[in-house]
Design a binder for these strands. Structure first.
Lengths: 333, 333
DNA sequence: CTGAAAGCGCTTACAG
DNA sequence: CTGAAAGCGCTTACAG
């Protein structure tokens, strides 16, 4: 292509400079060159640029299989990431990490073929896979989860305080029998949300009954049947909207009215919170801001592999809907 | 990297051949080279290959903004595409086409930078934008919609027969007052589904009352309030699950029971069909097979720009759930 | 302000 | 079975 542009009698160097608006070419020449390029339908070849500076300008977004599919939340997240990447002249390549590859510790082909300059890992992966990544020769960061290893950069929503504030809110509404729904050993997010809930419980000197922590899934993430406590709580704090939705249906089946008989709250503000009847009060995850932060950080790390951001928390906020009501006889303090 | 592989005393040509399992290298040498490459943590540079053969091995998947976001169906579709592309040693780059770019007729940057070898357009785009694409120097095909221009390759679900069979089924259940819900001017899919419905109506000599075609959205795709006919139908055929879900809620608000008072069916078999209460009988779109076909076709077109597939229909099938019941007093034939 | 030269890491004929 | 040469389309020093 560039040769053809030479047909106005300049070298390819000059054309390159003109098209990239670099110094060392007169304005008139630049305009003339740009004009001709447009007329000729010239398209820049980003591959050649990549060849030169060793950067693909692609970022791999890795979503473990179990979080994709039914759970559209991460796909929605990916959509945001892809837009933000675009704004930074980068592109996202989605990589669903299947169970087999995760267990067998095989890195995706986009790694082996140097298709990407870095990875955003969206959704908790196994410990051994984390170690595999660390040995690999590519920058990466965790999005929406983290690990106890402080050296790994992670961007997470503020699960702890989000749930802490949500539980505080319920207690202010007079609730004192509050259950938590979620397997507290399955992901760091769920665990932190539980701990935020627990902090609120402790601060208010409430009792944490054993059967008030209700597992929602097994270790592999498969949902299990929810066991309602014998002594019914007045409020359920669910680790995510989807489970809150499932719980709502179950409660209604058992003849409980929401929010009159018990309140239900979720987390994420995803589709399930608006689909539930009544709609769920929940904590909104700031996907937009998290995406911005993730993209900025990974690009920074591509430029400077030593760059580190540590653990970045992004605040959410409570969205009030119809699934919470004050307790009839407020608890006396 | 390859230079380093030279350290066993062969040329880069031999290494290239060995790693690509080409003829002209002894098996022993091949093994030795592969072994060393693995030990040294050699990573193939796909950019250089792209440079050489002028192919990026990326396919751009373009989703118009209005179909993304709330409607996770296309995102889900993208997930499938991305997996299938992976299996074909290709990669997908998601491009959300925003309203502005579509109106101003600007092609995405992945086109201008030769980032992709072809486009899969997932979701109906405006006529002028179609023409723009045709002038562009890149193969593309339409997925899940088509246009009257026969020259443009398109892969669609069999909307017409899907809805035709669904309506037949309702009529067999004794329904004779069947309404269609959907703006029949907004997309080719909806129009075809309507026509399938209409064919069934005609074949059974039923009357198509004017207010039995209920618009669900305006031209821009924004949902509008559904107008229930004065003379209530016994069944509603909705152009998609989401609208069927919305309608279900509206009917229940008005005191109608589903399916006792009226049956409701959808199309797509997406999340809305299982979220609705009762769950919806619907037509499942074969996303898997459509993805396979789309990927195969676009790669074929990349290799041979003259290759054409025309309009490919992929069959769906009826999924039976609880939103349909036979009419109490069956219509006498 | 302009351009000749070199190089990014591969692969494809072609010659030995 | 093996390798020297050329080239894909850019950009980056460097020299004029």
């Amino acid at each position: 292509m560039r040769d053809i542009a030479n047909k106005i009698g300049v070298s390819s160097v000059t054309v390159s400079k003109a098209l990239n608006d670099k110094d060392g070419v007169s304005e008139e020449l630049k305009d003339k060159i740009k004009q001709l390029a447009a007329d000729m339908g010239y398209r820049f070849n980003s591959v050649a640029r990549s060849m030169k500076d060793g950067l693909s300008y692609n970022i791999g977004v890795v979503i473990p299989e179990r979080f994709a599919g039914a759970n559209q939340f991460y796909l929605h997240f990916y959509e945001h990431l892809s837009k933000v990447l675009d704004n930074h002249k980068y592109y996202g390549i989605l990589q669903i990490l299947n169970v087999y590859d995760e267990e067998q510790l095989v890195l995706p082909r986009i790694y082996h073929e140097k298709k990407v300059d870095g990875f955003i890992i969206l959704g908790q992966i196994s410990k051994p896979y984390m170690e595999l990544l660390q040995q690999a020769d590519v920058p990466f960061l965790f999005l929406d989860f983290y690990t106890d290893d402080v050296d790994i950069d992670a961007i997470i929503s503020d699960n702890f305080y989000g749930m802490y504030e949500m539980t505080n809110y319920l207690i202010k509404q007079g609730h004192d029998k509050i259950a938590f729904v979620g397997n507290i050993y399955s992901t760091s997010s769920i665990q932190d949300r539980f701990l935020g809930y627990y902090k609120s419980i402790l601060e208010h000197h409430l009792q944490l009954q054993e059967d008030y922590v209700i597992p929602d899934r097994d270790r592999r993430g498969t949902f299990v049947d929810l066991q309602l406590p014998k002594d019914m709580p007045t409020a359920f704090v669910c680790n995510c909207d989807r489970v809150a939705y499932i719980l709502s249906n179950k409660l209604k089946e058992h003849g409980y009215r929401i929010p009159e008989d018990c309140s239900v709250v979720g987390f994420d503000n995803d589709i399930y919170s608006t689909i539930a009847d009544p709609q769920l009060t929940t904590v909104e995850v700031n996907v937009e801001e998290m995406s911005q932060a993730a993209v900025k950080s990974i690009i920074e790390k591509v430029k400077n592999p030593k760059h580190t951001i540590g653990r970045l928390m992004v605040k959410g906020r409570i969205i009030h809907r119809q699934s919470v009501s004050a307790v009839k006889q407020p608890h006396s303090l």
